[in-house]
Design a binder for these strands. Structure first.
Length: 489
RNA sequence: GGCCCCAUCGUCUAACGGCUAGGACACAGGAUUUUCAUUCCUGUAAUCGGAGUUCGAUUCUCCGUGGGGCUGCCA
């Protein structure tokens, strides 16, 4: 492993909805960087917008990250089902840090980097409309910056509602380096005097981000590209507060098939949906890692540990990536096949049990699971694929009779007899795939039959299905007694 | 409208300024197979457009075009 400086990273979602696949990718990259450098990965909850907070979403975020294997070193977590926090630099929930934001905001006012603004939402609205009509960029006109110290003091004493705004240095050109995009620059006078403290006493994202990432000692901020244009404000804040800014990496967005920003309208974007559908977290992580990053080699299959080893920001793409599920399904198949038989059986058993309770105490469950491990994609499909073991329905005529295989109305009874007589000659103690196969192949030869004639008939009679695992495997798994029973009935 | 970011097969992507632009998914065809899958082989398919720099641009510069983000007392 490369020896890199220890890096503390964080994932900082707001609890306004279930965790999005794009969020999982952001969290993954941050996690990989922290683990790669033996640093820490933290989860902070950004709940500064009281109106938009949705109950239950913090739990969803934590559960989804934990399903993905992205375990945190510090921050918000779940213990015995209830939300708690671990780590020394907390609290890690922004609504519990209000005093800290206020203290720093006050200091910004004292040092002349921020100022109170008493403008009403109505006036601001009006102002923007006029600016837009005049084809100007909507920006705060700094009316309240003109207020005298006395006026300000008086208004505050009178309890007038107000916000605190950042006083953007207009004359300045702000240059900086993004880890993914290289060097960038913005002109100060084109950047708005952003609100830092709202009139309800909560900070906005901008102030909270700067204060928290400073005190939580974050080295690298990994977030979506939508934040790129507010980065200059954040850098100005770090400097005004006398702090060293972290490094930043702005990730390209995930896109819909039509290349617009990934949205709910065009498919599932909630990470949890994929768990429910039966995707493996390994497949999901592998898929997400490759959306916007490549290893520089031809390796496609990566475990989480391999990702920790291989990941680097300099191979992250700049352009957005379409969230196209086809590759996810292929990766899922690969990961299903990599599972050990006992792991695989354990994962599908709940889905099978749900439909067929008998699977619960089935001593032969693993043997049955083996028959479908190479054939399935999504975990819940196992129930249907194994259904013939637990709830047998004899094949209908159109399944049993198959012209292509040479199974017809006229010879099907003869084929059945051949199957019964040959298989019944085999002792139960010798019933294994090898002997079953041998007995049947001998019967084929003796009766001058085509392979498909006998085996299609056997498979159809044992499974009742047009598609299923192979005849030998099914007969072996079913055992002598049940096999003969299904052949005779 | 303003500011910013971006641009290679349908999709994810590779290619110190230098080879027939490579791989993977998907798709098509074939092989194996008792079915469906799996597996294996083969094939179709891309540098957004225009200038410039250069002996030589996917790569560097500029201009277009297209897409995206931001432009909230949202994050």
């Amino acid at each position: 492993m490369r020896m890199l400086r220890i890096m503390r990273t964080r994932f900082a979602p707001s609890p306004t909805g279930v965790l999005h696949v794009g969020g999982v990718r952001t969290a993954l990259y941050a996690y990989l960087l922290a683990k790669q450098t033996k640093g820490q990965f933290l989860l902070r909850i950004e709940d500064t917008d009281q109106a938009r907070s949705v109950p239950g979403t913090v739990e969803n975020i934590i559960n989804t990250l934990s399903w993905c294997g992205l375990t945190i070193d510090e921050g918000v977590t779940l213990r015995d089902g209830s939300i708690t926090e671990i780590g020394k630099l907390g609290p890690y929930t922004q609504s519990k840090r209000l005093d800290l934001y206020k203290k720093n905001a006050d200091q910004l006012v004292a040092s002349g980097h921020a100022y109170p603004c008493f403008c009403t939402p109505e006036r601001l609205d009006e102002m923007r409309k006029i600016q837009q009509a005049a084809k100007q960029a909507p920006m705060y006109d700094r009316q309240c910056l003109k207020l005298s110290k006395e006026d300000v003091a008086q208004k505050i004493a009178a309890g007038e509602k107000h916000v605190l705004r950042l006083k953007m240095p207009h004359e300045e050109k702000i240059t900086f380096t993004d880890e993914i995009r290289g060097s960038l620059e913005f002109m100060g006078h084109l950047i708005d005097d952003q609100v830092l403290m709202k009139s309800d006493g909560f900070p906005t994202y901008h102030l909270a981000h700067v204060v928290d990432d400073h005190f939580m000692e974050i080295d690298m901020v990994i977030r979506g590209e939508e934040w790129l244009s507010s980065l200059p404000k954040h850098l100005v804040l770090f400097r005004a507060l006398g702090w060293k800014a972290p490094r930043y990496a702005h990730l390209p967005l995930l896109l819909n098939l039509d290349r617009t920003k990934l949205s709910k309208r065009q498919g599932d974007v909630a990470a949890d949906e994929y768990r429910q559908k039966g995707y493996l977290p390994e497949a999901m992580i592998n898929f997400l890692a490759l959306l916007g990053w490549n290893p520089g080699t031809e390796q496609e299959i990566f475990s989480c540990n391999e990702l920790i080893e291989a990941f680097s920001l300099d191979r992250v793409q700049k352009a957005g990536a379409v969230f196209d599920l086809q590759k996810l399904d292929w990766l899922q198949g690969q990961w299903i096949r990599k599972l050990s038989l006992s792991e695989f059986a354990e994962k599908i058993q709940p889905f099978v049990m749900e439909k067929f309770p008998a699977a619960l105490n089935d001593a032969d469950f693993e043997r049955k699971a083996l028959l479908i491990q190479e054939r399935m994609i999504l975990l819940p499909e196992a129930a249907e694929m194994l259904s013939f073991f637990y709830a047998f329905t004899p094949p209908t005529a159109d399944v049993l009779l198959n012209a292509k295989q040479g199974v017809t109305k006229d010879n099907v009874n003869m084929l059945k007899e051949v199957l019964v007589s040959s298989l019944s000659s085999l002792d139960a103690k010798k019933w294994n795939q090898e002997s079953v196969e041998k007995v049947l192949m001998d019967a084929l030869e003796k009766n001058d039959l085509k392979k498909g004639q006998l085996l299609w008939t056997l498979r159809a009679l044992l499974t009742g299905k047009a598609f299923s695992p192979g005849a030998f495997e099914v007969a072996t798994a079913l055992g002598r007694e049940e096999t003969l029973k299904r052949l005779i009935s």
